[in-house]
Every structure is written in C-alpha cells, then in structure tokens.
Nucleic acid binder design. Structure first.
Lengths: 187, 187
DNA sequence: ACCTGAACACCGTTCAAGT
DNA sequence: ACCTGAACACCGTTCAAGT
C-alpha cells in the first residue's frame, strides 16, 4: 500500500534548513517556520534533534561536505596555476551575486559554529593557494603571504560585490591586474 | 530638588544599542533586554521610537557619524601615501581583534539598513584610496583598480583575522609586501 | 520511531492608565 | 512627555498522549 502519511527524517530537516540559510541566513533556521513548511507541527522536530542548535550543527556539517567537494572539483579542471587563480576569483563575485549559502555564512561568522565550519574550508583553500604560488616560483614564505593576500582579496571581493556592486563592473580587468601583480616572482 | 527618578531620552537607548552591537551584534539590539539594562519596562521604549526598526536606524546613523569622523582624522596624521595605506591596513586587523562595532556590522551586511550605512563609509574610503594611488603615480583606471584591490584586502584581512588568526601572526610582513606590490607603478 | 496538541518562557508590540 | 502593567502574537522547548 502507498504510504500517504509521509514521515520525515533528520535529513529532511537539514535540507529545509539549507534552503532557509540560502534565502534568509542562519536566523531563518527556525523550528516553527520549518515545521510549517514541512507540513508537521513543531513538536515533532524534537524527535530528530535535541534542540535548534543541533540542527544548525548538522546543517553546517552537510554544507561543508558539499562545499569542499565542489571546490576540489573546480580546481581539478586545469593544471595551469594562473587559470586556477582566475577560477577562484571568479567564484567570489559569482557567489556574492547568486546569494549562495557560502556568502550567507561569511556574514554569520561571529557564530562559533559557523566559524568552525568556515575555518576548515578556509584552511583547505589556503593550502591549495600556497601550492599554486609555489608552482609559480615563489619561495615558501612569499607563497604563504601571497596565498593569504589572494584569499583576503577573494573574501573582500565577496563583500564588496554586495556593498558597492557598481565598483566591480570592471571586475574582469580588476582581477586580471591583481593576478598579474600577485603572480609576479618578486625578490 | 534632585530628580531621583531618571527619565530616559532616545539618545540613551541608542547608546545602549551601540554597546549591544559591539558585544552581541544586531540581534542583541533587543527591546526587552535593553529596557532591563536601562532599568525601565519595555513598554516605555515606544515613547521614544515607533518600533525596534527605528531604533536600529537611529543607532546606525549614530555609528556612521562617529566612524566617518574617526577615519578622516586618522588619515590626516600624515601626508605620505604609503604610510596612509599602512595605517589603513593596520586598522583592519586591529578592528577584528578588538571586536569593534565595524567588525560586527560587516558581518551583518545582509541587512539592507546596515548595507546602506556601510556603503557610504566604503565609498568615502575608496575615494581616499584612489587619491593615494594617484599620488603614487598611477593612471586613473589603475588607481581605481588598486584602490578596490586594497580595500578588498582590508575587508578580507578583517575576516581572516577572525577566521584563521594564526595565519596573520606574520601580519606586518604580509602587509608590507602587499603594499610594496600594490604601490608599484605598473605599466 | 515519529507525530500531535497543549503548555510555558522569551521578546516585539499595543494600549489603558499613571506621573 | 515618559513610564507601568497587562495583554497578545511569535518562536524555542517540554511533555503527555497518540500511531
């Protein structure tokens, strides 16, 4: 017989929470509204999670998995270091425009749970960037500096694309120039 | 006669709200907790403001005034362009560490009211930065790019100082190198 | 195991009534 | 003008009871 009364799983709640973050940030991960959206009463939520905090944790872990995988994949499309940097920078402004979960989470990073998830993602990216700059001929110390600089630019562009989008119309030229400057073997 | 029953003004509420933002972000601007802190009942709040939103607006306007003034003052301590850049970058990491209101607001910039206040502050800073790069001998277009780049780095460092503070132990060397690179007359 | 429905605490907002 | 105290709506959490 077909089961007309659909029963939910923890994963259903996490998926709904991810949607909520994308459109309304962490604050939108609210038990009662999610319950309404899922067609159940809020009481049933506590059959899956101890409290709202546990849902937030589980949802962030889910995002982290998805996100790290996507990043690694996009890096593997080319071996040329400069093209890899270009792809990374392009991701920044696109992410801001599309209003992705990552963009949201950056803005929620005063939350220790969010910061922990972002930190792991950031460290992975910094390692990759360092490798790229080493490939470009930089010494160890210089590669670390350039990697940090490049990632700071990435984060900053994400922010500026929201704040002053007009400034970034010339974005491609801006990024090209930055990469030329950062890519130079210097001392 | 001494007035033992202190009556509050709108400004008292705004000051308390600024303190709340510094320690707990926008979410901490909550009528009932503020009322408790001020020693009145929450009902009296509505004698000063129409609603919580109006308090947030007034508080952000107050911050903007204070903040723009501080920035302009710090820029006027020296005429040397490179030293001005250095001062700006040092502000970024210090701001993150001290947990200033600005650091908080950057993280709340998905709120349209916050974005409007930040946008005005950002535009003023970008203008100043452009002037500095022009002074360093860059053409108009290049100066605009470098200004945007420098400000992106500023914002990015603010974020990274929270996320991966260990990476910024070598901060002075990092900033110096960045400024050397960005300051170069190039093409 | 998952769900409902009622309960209570907390904060935003309103309002009648006090000074 | 500013304040109190009670009321109501909304969301987090608990719990007894249902399937």
């Amino acid at each position: 017989m077909v089961q007309l009364v659909k029963r939910l799983t923890a994963e259903d709640w996490e998926r709904a929470a991810l949607d909520a973050i994308a459109s309304g940030g962490l604050a939108a991960v609210a038990v009662e509204p999610l319950a309404r959206r899922l067609g159940v009463t809020k009481g049933s939520f506590y059959a899956h999670f101890r409290d709202r905090n546990e849902l937030v944790d589980a949802t962030l872990r889910r995002w982290e998995e998805i996100h790290v995988n996507a990043f690694v994949a996009s890096m593997q499309t080319t071996d040329e270091p400069l093209k890899r940097l270009q792809a990374l920078m392009a991701m920044a402004t696109n992410a801001a425009r599309r209003g992705t979960i990552q963009g949201r989470l950056l803005l929620e990073s005063d939350d220790p749970r969010v910061r922990a998830a972002l930190k792991r993602v950031t460290e992975l990216r910094l390692e990759r960037l360092e490798a790229i700059f080493a490939q470009l001929g930089h010494s160890n110390g210089a590669a670390a500096h350039r990697a940090t600089a490049a990632y700071a630019i990435y984060i900053g562009l994400l922010q500026l694309a929201r704040e002053v989008p007009e400034r970034l119309v010339d974005e491609r030229a801006l990024i090209d120039e930055l990469l030329r400057v950062l890519g130079q073997v210097h001392a």
